[in-house]
């Protein structure tokens, strides 16, 4: 029984470590940060879940085995979100992103606004707003936010009508 348990755990652990090695090699093989993220995700999902499964088989008591399973569940929830935020950071801060990927911007999203402001009139308004605020204190902010809310309301109405 002991031997069966050991073999089971050891096999899982070794496969997990192999996938970790694959992930770390991938981090050096790929040429672009967003591609490297793919390799890192192998480490974060497959590697850790296989290792923790093996270790929970080998664990000294049932409580620690359950805690290790909890670590797997935690990683399944958290690792994709961490990847999402990293990817967002990468897409947003990389100025030469066009040479690595194709961007399809959906109208009305944040990225759309970014694209428009890259060299352009809307930004100018925003800048002026900001400067007015420095000069006139707080009142301008309130007005600006009011107008923003109003325009948003109009948009909503237009969509529904």
């Amino acid at each position: 029984m002991q031997i069966v348990r050991f073999v089971f755990g050891a096999v899982f652990l070794i496969i997990g470590l192999l996938s970790c090695i694959v992930g770390v090699i991938g981090v050096f093989k790929f040429k672009y940060a967003a591609n490297r993220m793919h390799a890192a995700a192998i480490n974060d999902t497959l590697g850790i879940s296989l290792c923790m499964l093996g270790l929970s088989v080998l664990a000294p008591d049932i409580a620690s085995a359950l805690k290790m399973i909890l670590v797997i569940i935690f990683f399944w929830i958290s690792a994709p979100v961490a990847s999402h935020l990293l990817c967002r950071l990468e897409v947003e801060t990389n100025e030469e992103r066009e040479q690595y990927m194709e961007l399809h911007v959906i109208e009305g999203t944040e990225a759309d606004a970014d694209k428009n402001t890259a060299g352009a009139p809307e930004m100018e308004e925003k800048v002026e707003e900001a400067e007015n605020e420095t000069a006139d204190g707080q009142k301008m902010t309130a007005e600006a936010s009011d107008t923003q809310i109003a325009s948003m309301d109009n948009m909503v109405k237009g969509e529904t009508a």
Binding site: G9, L13, G16, L17, C20, G23, V24, V27, A33, R36, M37, A40, N43, D44, G47, I48, C51, M52, L55, L58, A59, P60, D61, A63, S64, M68, V71, F75, A82, L86, L89, E90, T93
Partner: peptide
């Protein structure tokens, strides 16, 4: 910067596996 953050994340993942192995090795729950 994203490369660096990613690498730090990977290091912490490996650390978690290491702590799990320590649990088995020392038999401390």
């Amino acid at each position: 910067v994203s490369d660096r953050i990613m690498a730090v994340n990977m290091v912490s993942t490996l650390t978690i596996i290491m702590v799990g192995i320590m649990t088995v090795y020392l038999k401390e729950g």
